[in-house]
């Protein structure tokens, strides 16, 4: 673990300043009082007013549960899929890669809506409700949002690991291991995967930012009472506080990941030199 509080505080300061600028910019540019005679700590959806505190913590917890479960599901699924793809013959691997390029270009909105309809269609034709498709009466649903949110990261991670795997398999240590008579399966599990996991950390930022954006669409379409829904409807100070609630833990994660990847690349340079 490599972590310096000072650089984290620097990053945090810059984030807070940025959020401050963003939250006052609309009022500055268009000169409208968007607060519209309501309490600072209240926000309204469809003319119904809701207090920000203390509900926001519960929603926050709900959203983060979905987010991290989806991330974990995506990671595990991607690794398992990569493992099976490497066992396939070469031409099938190319087909899988082409398919991934196609799947990657599907917009998140498309996937969310199609999944919702698929569940409805299955329910209509067979009478089996696989999962609830919408949040009703504050009865939180978990299965479908997690599945939906995990699909796109799975595809992205799958593609990245597949590419990394291709690079890794031509490295000298794999050849040495092969010549020692170790089986391909064993090398992949024991050596290649371990090395890939460390290089996968480099892509944390793309995946996290992408998933936060997806989380918003999932929450909106499934009508979940999550943090992104709050963020969408709050204004001014309440918006700032909500954004900070997301920003502070995530920037901590980014800082830890970043300082460790820098350390990794430095180590590699030293080894190379």
């Amino acid at each position: 673990m490599n972590f310096s509080l000072r650089s984290y505080l620097k990053r945090l300061r810059s984030t807070i300043l940025g959020i401050l600028i963003i939250s006052i910019l609309p009022a500055l540019l268009f000169g409208t009082n968007t607060q519209l005679e309501q309490n600072v700590w209240e926000y309204s959806i469809n003319r119904l007013k809701y207090p920000l505190f203390p509900d926001v913590f519960e929603k926050y917890q709900y959203s983060m549960t979905i987010f991290f479960c989806a991330l974990l599901t995506g990671l595990v699924a991607a690794l398992i899929l990569t493992f099976f793809t490497t066992l396939l013959p070469r031409f099938l691997q190319r087909i899988v890669y082409g398919l991934l390029t196609f799947l990657e270009s599907l917009p998140d909105l498309f996937i969310v809506v199609v999944l919702q309809f698929a569940i409805i269609y299955i329910y209509k034709s067979t009478g089996v409700l696989l999962s609830n498709i919408s949040n009703v009466y504050n009865n939180p649903i978990y299965l479908l949002p997690i599945l939906t949110l995990s699909i796109l990261p799975t595809i992205q991670l799958f593609k990245i690991t597949l590419l990394l795997m291709k690079d890794e398999q031509h490295k000298p240590y794999v050849t040495v291991a092969r010549s020692m008579g170790l089986s391909r399966l064993y090398i992949t599990i024991a050596h290649v995967f371990r090395n890939i996991l460390t290089s996968l950390v480099q892509y944390y930022k793309t995946i996290f930012v992408f998933m936060l954006s997806n989380l918003f669409i999932v929450e909106y379409v499934f009508n979940l009472n999550g943090i992104m829904n709050v963020l969408l409807n709050t204004k001014g100070v309440a918006f700032m506080v909500t954004a900070l609630m997301i920003a502070i833990p995530f920037s901590l994660l980014f800082e830890i990941a970043e300082s460790n990847t820098i350390k990794l690349t430095k180590q590699e340079e030293e080894e190379a030199a």
């Binding site: 600028i21 669409i217 204004k235």
Partner: peptide, 22 residues
């Protein structure tokens, strides 16, 4: 750079929405 740091955590759709709404 401050704004870029902040927009990492706020989805672009929400960012555009708060401006469009006002």
């Amino acid at each position: 750079n401050d704004i870029v740091q902040a927009t990492l955590y706020i989805p672009t759709a929400i960012l555009a929405f708060i401006f469009m709404n006002s």
